[in-house]
């Protein structure tokens, strides 16, 4: 990746492009219609498919919108009723707390393991590294429905390989233990599935960041007697911090809206003990046919995630500005 030619500082940037213009080379010149024509199809698809639904989601969150309204195609305006109902419901607050706890645990574990694996990847020999990368990509590409089926089988109460192993190792006696009877162990399995699936992307991305850290810096610190811990926190981490920001915020956004792992793992009918915000919003809409209330929950989800999204989008825009 040729980083050198675009190491231009913000001040040097206009200089560069004006020199290009002088040479009569219109590569990145502000140039009339062409760029707009190029982005037009993408904009048409995104705005065409998303703008109205998003507006509509906001609107019906203020309406009573059930099955009858779905058929009549018209909700009745009830102002803040949905929100009032939702915020006054102790169940809602339990679910919010649970969702936040779930997100913190899952993102924390994902980042921890991914960072450790990335640190290993940097230090491995070429062949082992290649093998580990292929393995990670394989896990990354495994469809979530497949992953769920496999984990269901591994934690099966009767013939699951996990119960057998843990019992044999005398960790705990788990003969005929159903992990989903208790929400705590149930969530442990769900966390395992989510983190297992999330590690590859995070690890490979962080590894890509680590591998761009100039080796001389690390070596210089080592020769000066810095411990591995110090090298990581004082040299490596500050340099790859933007990548950590990106991966962490993406993980937060993904884990906050976990749905499939719970919905499919618990065979399309999770008990309320397993509701996270995404599942709750879905159940209110499609199970109970309270689309208005479901929409209100969804709006709250989006609002709660806005801060994280903002950090992420800003970081990405910065990267694209630095690149261009």
């Amino acid at each position: 990746m040729s980083a050198a030619p675009r190491a231009a500082t913000p001040a040097a940037e206009p200089l560069l492009s004006s020199r290009r213009r002088e040479r009569g080379l219109p590569a990145r010149v502000a140039a009339g219609a062409p760029p707009y024509l190029l982005v037009l199809p993408t904009l048409v698809v995104l705005v065409g498919v998303l703008a109205y639904p998003l507006y509509w989601l906001g609107r019906i969150s203020f309406e009573h919108y059930g099955l009858a309204e779905l058929i009549a195609r018209k909700g009745t305006w009830t102002g803040l009723d949905n929100y009032r109902h939702m915020l006054g419901d102790a169940e809602f607050w339990r679910i919010v707390a649970r969702t936040i706890a779930f997100t913190v645990v899952n993102v924390g574990l994902t980042m921890l393991f991914a960072t450790l694996i990335a640190l290993l990847l940097v230090r491995m020999g070429t062949i082992v590294r290649g093998a580990v990368l292929v393995g990670l990509v394989w896990v990354w590409a495994t469809p979530v429905t497949v992953a769920i089926a496999v984990w269901q089988w591994m934690v099966d109460f009767e013939f699951g390989v996990l119960n057998w192993t843990l019992t044999k190792l005398h960790v705990v006696d788990l003969i005929h233990y159903n992990w989903f009877d208790n929400p705590w162990t149930g969530f442990a399995v769900i966390t395992a599935v989510v983190v297992w699936g999330a590690i590859p992307f995070a690890a490979i991305t962080i590894y890509a960041g680590f591998s761009q850290v100039p080796q001389e810096l690390v070596e210089a610190a080592e020769v000066d007697g810095a411990s591995a811990w110090e090298v990581f926190w004082r040299v490596t981490f500050p340099l790859v911090k933007p990548i950590f920001v990106i991966v962490t915020s993406l993980s937060i956004i993904w884990d906050f809206q976990v749905f499939n792992q719970i919905w499919i793992m618990l065979e399309f009918r999770p008990s309320p003990d397993y509701y996270l915000l995404g599942v709750y919003s879905f159940v209110e809409s499609f199970r109970v046919s309270q689309y208005g209330l479901g929409a209100a929950i969804a709006v709250v989800m989006v609002v709660l995630m806005l801060g994280v999204s903002f950090v992420y989008v800003r970081q990405m825009v910065r990267i694209s500005e630095a690149d261009a």
């Binding site: 998003l54 989601l57 019906i60 956004i253 906050f256 749905f259 969804a298």
Partner: peptide, 9 residues
């Protein structure tokens, strides 16, 4: 945008 939010509308 969360998929669960989009799926309703």
């Amino acid at each position: 945008i969360p998929a669960t939010a989009l799926i309703i509308p």
